[in-house]
Computed example of a mutant assay.
Amino acid sequence: MTDHEAIAAEILRQTAARGAEKSICPSEVARALAPEEEAWRRLLGPVRAAAIRLAREGRIEVLRKGKPADPAGEIRGVIRLRASPPAAAEKE
């Protein structure tokens, strides 16, 4: 499994475990993959990039200020991640 595959798998695992009503912070994913502080901080960029890819695929939602952000556009600032609602996942 490549690094980006491991990151995507952890994002999907955590968002599924939390459910469609709750979200996770990207730092939770980074800390699960690299518990040491300097190591998990270096993963934040790759976690964010993987989350945006997963959102473009319709597998998760990226939230900005509690609302879904358009993954086709530029996503800046603080984000949270949550599982896609069941209706969105069924459309695929």
Rank of each mutant, 00 (worst) to 15 (best):
R18I: 06
R56N: 12
A34D: 10
E10G: 00
A32S: 10
T2I: 08
G19T: 15
E21F: 13
E57D: 15
V62S: 12
I24L: 01
E37A: 10
R64M: 12
L44C: 02
R56L: 03
R13Q: 07
A17F: 13
E61S: 12
E90D: 13
K91L: 11
R41C: 06
R48E: 00
A88Q: 14
L44P: 03
C25L: 08
S84A: 15
P86H: 04
A55Q: 09
A39Y: 06
E36W: 10
P85C: 08
R80S: 10
R80H: 10
L33R: 09
E37W: 03
S27Y: 05
R18H: 08
S23D: 14
P71K: 10
I60R: 02
A50C: 11
A32M: 01
I7P: 00
P71Y: 10
P68T: 12
A34C: 12
A30Q: 00
S27F: 03
R13V: 03
A17M: 07
A72M: 11
A89F: 03
A83N: 09
R13S: 04
K91R: 15
E61V: 06
I52Q: 14
I75F: 08
G45K: 14
I79P: 05
G73L: 08
G19V: 08
R18D: 04
R56K: 12
T15F: 02
G19Q: 14
A9V: 00
E37G: 07
I11V: 05
E57N: 13
R42G: 04
R56D: 04
P26I: 00
R82P: 01
A88H: 15
A39R: 12
L33M: 05
T15W: 01
L12P: 01
A51D: 01
E5L: 11
A87H: 12
V47L: 02
E10R: 02
L81T: 00
A6K: 05
A17I: 08
D3V: 06
K65D: 15
R31D: 03
R59Q: 13
W40K: 13
P86W: 00
H4A: 08
R59F: 01
A49D: 14
L63N: 11
A83D: 09
I75H: 11
R80C: 03
L54A: 05
R41A: 11
G73E: 13
K22R: 14
A51M: 03
S27K: 14
T2S: 15
A69E: 10
L33W: 06
T2F: 12
A55M: 07
A8S: 13
S27C: 04
G66T: 14
I24V: 00
E92T: 12
K91Q: 14
A17P: 07
C25W: 07
K91Y: 11
G73I: 07
L54D: 03
E61T: 09
A6Q: 03
A72F: 09
A6S: 02
W40C: 06
S84Q: 13
S27W: 04
Q14T: 01
K65Y: 15
Q14F: 02
P86K: 03
S27N: 09
P26W: 01
M1A: 07
L81K: 02
K91M: 11
E90I: 02
V29K: 02
A51Q: 04
A8P: 01
P46H: 06
E90Y: 03
E61R: 09
V29F: 00
A6R: 05
P86D: 04
E61W: 06
W40L: 02
R53Q: 15
I52Y: 10
A39W: 05
E37V: 04
A9M: 04
S84P: 11
A20C: 11
